[in-house]
Each structure stands twice: as C-alpha cells, then as structure tokens.
Write a protein that binds this DNA or RNA. Structure first.
Lengths: 205, 205
DNA sequence: TTCTGTATAAGTGTATACACTTTGACGAAA
DNA sequence: TTTCGTCAAAGTGTATACACTTATACAGAA
C-alpha cells in the first residue's frame, strides 16, 4: 500500500459518496485500515488536500470539503470559463483518431451511467473531449474543479431524468464534434454545465 | 520552525532567485538548515509541490520547477483569462476603501520596485486589485500561476526599462480604477500581462 | 576517448515512540 | 436550562532509526 494507492482508495470513497462532505478522516484509523503507519497516510491526505477534496489544518482533524452555495457558484463559473475555452481549442485541432476516442469514451459513459462508477465514465468522456487541446495545466485545473464539485453531488442520489439529460448532452456533444459545429458544440457544453450547476444548487437549497 | 515557516523560507528563496529552476532540495540538508527532522521538511516540500513551485516524484530528489516555452505560454493564457475576468468582477464592486487599499499597495510596490522584494510588492498590488471580487478560489488559482511564472523570471535580472514600464502600468491601472474606466482598465491589465509574458519568452529564446 | 557496469555514498520512505493539541463529555455555577 | 471550566480520551506533530532506492564516481571494455 503506497501513498498513491491510499490516495486513490480515499478519493474513490469520497467521490463515491461513502465519505460525505464534513466527514472526518482520522490518520490512525486509516493507517489501521490500510495496514501502514500514519506517515504514508499523512502523505495521502496532503495529496487529497492539494486536489481540493479534503481540508487540512494544523492540529485539526482532516475533513472532506463542504462547499457553500457561493463556493459552488464560483467553482462552476470557473469551470464554464476554463472548460468552454479548452473545448474550443480542442475542437480546432481534433483529428479522426480523437473523434474515435470520444466515441469510445461516450460508449463507456453510457455503459456506466446508471451504476456506481458513473463519475469515472463522465470524467473519461470530458477528458477525451479536451485532450486534443494539449493543455496539461488547464486540464489539471479543470480536473480539480470537477472533482471538488463531484464531492458535493456524491451525497445526493441522482434522479433518472437527470441521468437522461446528461446522456443526451454527451451524445449531442459527440455529434456536434463530428459535424464540426464548433460554436453549437461550445454552447451545448455551456448548457450542460449550467444544468449540472442548477441541479446541485437545487439540492443545496 | 514549523512546516509553514519552512515553506515560506523556501518560497522566498525560490521566488528571489536564490534557488534557480532545476535546483535540488535535499531533505537532509534542509532539515539541518532549519534545525528540525526531515518530517516537517517533507511536509513543507509537499506544500511547495501543491503550489507548483517544485517537482516531487517518489524516491527522486525534489527540484525547483523548470517550465518549457509551451508551458509558459499556457500559464500566461490562463492568467490572462482568469485575471482579466477577476479584475472585471472586482471593478464592478469597488468601494472607496478598496481604492484606498490599492493606493497603499501601489505606494508599497513603487517603494520595493528596485530591491530584492519587488515580487512581494507586485503580488500585493495585484491582490489589492482583485480583492473586491471576493473570489477565493479564483484568487488562489491566480496566485499559483503567478508564483509559477515568477520562479522562471527570478533567475534573470530585470532591466531598468522593464521596471519602468511595470511601474507605469501599475500607476495607470490605479488611475483607471479611480476613474471607473472598466474596459480601459481591463485592456491595460491585458497589455501588462502580455508584456510580462513576452519579456520572459525573450529570455527563454 | 567514450561507453558501460558496479560499488559506494547520498537520498528517500516509513515504522515506532513520545510530546503536544484538540475534542467531547461531565459536572458546577449562573 | 444554559454556560462555563475541567479532565480524560483521541488525535496530531515530529524526532529517531533503519530499510530501500537513486545518484555518482570510478574501473575496465570497446
């Protein structure tokens, strides 16, 4: 069990909803669970903190982040700005191979849409959409924001109608990429994100 | 010497150019320097890594980040997007107290412009410009990008004419804030950032 | 000379132990 | 009842020790 393994295991728990926002993560208990000392656990918690999934303060217990309404709005504003920009850049350099990879990611996200792993499929699909832009730093920032948002959504159950809308958006994005309709594609992405934001805000209210 | 103190001391060294990009930071030597064991040093290095100032890989020595030309361009694209957006938001909610704080920050950055602490004054001035927007996450992202860029600039000596242009930009930004000329202010900020980017790129070439 | 393999030094990773801090429960006073 | 103070239990921080990995210098081969 390396610190990376521990990080991924905890990330899965947090993103899967097993650890709700506000939950505490005591180092000793985690060390026992993973069969290591507290040192690698501390390392893993530091990684999660830098990814924005947990809050880490000196001498205080680590907690899964809890975002306020304003913080959710800010995060989605940032995502809208960063993701639409990156998508526009990606659309300009998309090759047939890229389109095939998007097809594959869409099929996978369809497959996993209604099981516990849906978040992973969603992340994969969006990563495939943005990959042609070749912007590692921007991609990393987006990943961080997406995960932080996912943590907040994970504690609520998703309605079937939301899943339907989400799948339809993904399919539409794929089609618009294939058709080369760049402005329509970007607008669809914007709508996809604002929809997700409003769903989350409705839960918070 | 807490991990935070160590982090700040190392950050100062890196941003001040005492530790050039590519320098190694051995835990043992740092532990001796700060009079602590390697544990708090590791903690500090992890913080610097999450701030993007050093590169940290398992079983490898920690190094100050070295950005490629493409990475510099990407970082400045992101800064342009995030900083102009935040500045626009800040301008819309700027109070007389905020303007006074900007005056103070400008005076400080003028004062420190030609000594070793100029980076801190610059950071303070820009923080004052953006503070009225009340966007902690966006501000944190910008801070990270600014520091990553600063590391690359720190190793070169700044020409007096660059410093003059930089001071003139700051004064102009202050004046445009006071005059409420929001679009002109934003454009000036954009020019300020592209100028800084081109200066850095010229050094890299 | 330049390249490659190897030994050794230097460096990183983490288990353990213990000092220090926070938390939460309980009881006394307002 | 609520609020405050106190104390034990739980938790965090870090020094030390040692196992493991990487880097470096040096010898020999091409």
């Amino acid at each position: 069990m390396t610190p990376e393994d521990i990080t991924h295991a905890l990330e899965k728990d947090i993103l899967g909803g097993a650890l709700a926002p506000g939950s505490v993560l005591p180092q000793g208990a985690l060390a026992a669970r993973f069969g290591v000392s507290r040192i690698p656990v501390r390392d893993a918690l530091a990684r999660l903190a830098s990814a924005g999934l947990v809050e880490l303060a000196p001498n205080r217990r680590t907690r899964v982040v809890e975002m306020s309404r304003d913080e959710v709005i800010e995060a989605y504003d940032l995502r809208l700005m960063l993701e639409t920009d990156l998508f526009t850049r990606a659309l300009a350099r998309m090759t047939p191979q890229d389109l095939d990879r998007i097809d594959y990611a869409l099929a996978r996200s369809d497959l996993e849409a209604r099981n516990a792993n849906w978040a992973e499929g969603d992340a994969l699909f969006h990563a495939a959409l943005y990959a042609p832009a070749q912007r590692p730093r921007q991609q990393a920032m987006i990943d961080g924001l997406r995960r932080a948002c996912r943590v907040q959504i994970a504690s609520y159950e998703t309605l079937p109608e939301d899943t339907d809308r989400w799948l339809a958006d993904h399919a539409a994005l794929r089609d618009l990429c294939r058709a080369g309709q760049t402005t329509a594609a970007t607008e669809r992405l914007r709508a996809h994100l604002t929809g997700a934001r409003d769903t989350l805000l409705a839960h918070l209210a």
